[in-house]
Simulated scan of single mutants.
Amino acid sequence: MIKGGCRCGACRYEIAIDELPRVYACHCHVCQRWTGGAFSLQALVAEDRLTVAGPVVVQEITTEDRTSVQRFCGTCHARIYNTNTRRPGVSVVRAGTLDRSEDLDCVAHIFTAYHQRWVAIPAGVPSWPEAPPPEDLVRALTA
């Protein structure tokens, strides 16, 4: 069982898997603005393996091609995960909320056309200048 939670500890979650998930960094401007940082570190997790307890606030964002449902801690407003209509059954967990985030393996980078120039994208790690084909990202995360 993998565990994590928000900044203040009011929301805690468990992922019913045995090992830390492999993660990817998204360098798009939306993620930079969401996090206030250079990128967002994310893990794809089957929605039915994720259990969250605590005061969760939900925000729905609809664009021309999908609806994204964001989940935040209702106390500290840390973003914990989201789902979207383009990936049914998949939760996108904010990997920095994992209890053992220092042990994560970042195996892919997306939207690198927008990365901060001081961030070095490691050679040999799969990366895409924009959104990758979904099957390519899944392949990188499961290789």
Rank of each mutant, 00 (worst) to 15 (best):
T83V: 14
E64R: 11
S68T: 14
T62M: 07
F72V: 12
Q70H: 15
C76W: 00
T63F: 05
R87T: 06
R66A: 13
D65S: 15
T75P: 03
D65A: 11
I61C: 09
T85M: 02
T67Y: 02
T83N: 12
G74K: 06
R86T: 10
G89K: 04
N82I: 05
T62V: 08
S68C: 10
G74C: 09
T62R: 14
F72K: 13
F72I: 13
T63D: 07
H77E: 11
N82F: 15
N82L: 13
R79C: 07
I80C: 09
Y81E: 08
T75K: 04
V90W: 04
C76Q: 00
T62L: 05
R86G: 07
D65E: 12
I80W: 08
D65P: 01
T83R: 15
G74M: 09
T85D: 05
T62S: 14
R71K: 14
E64V: 09
N84S: 00
E64L: 07
G74R: 07
D65R: 13
G89W: 02
Y81M: 12
I80L: 15
T63H: 05
T83F: 13
T85I: 03
Q70D: 10
A78Q: 13
T62W: 02
T75G: 01
F72D: 11
R71P: 05
Q70V: 08
F72G: 12
V90I: 15
Q70S: 08
I61D: 10
R71L: 07
F72H: 15
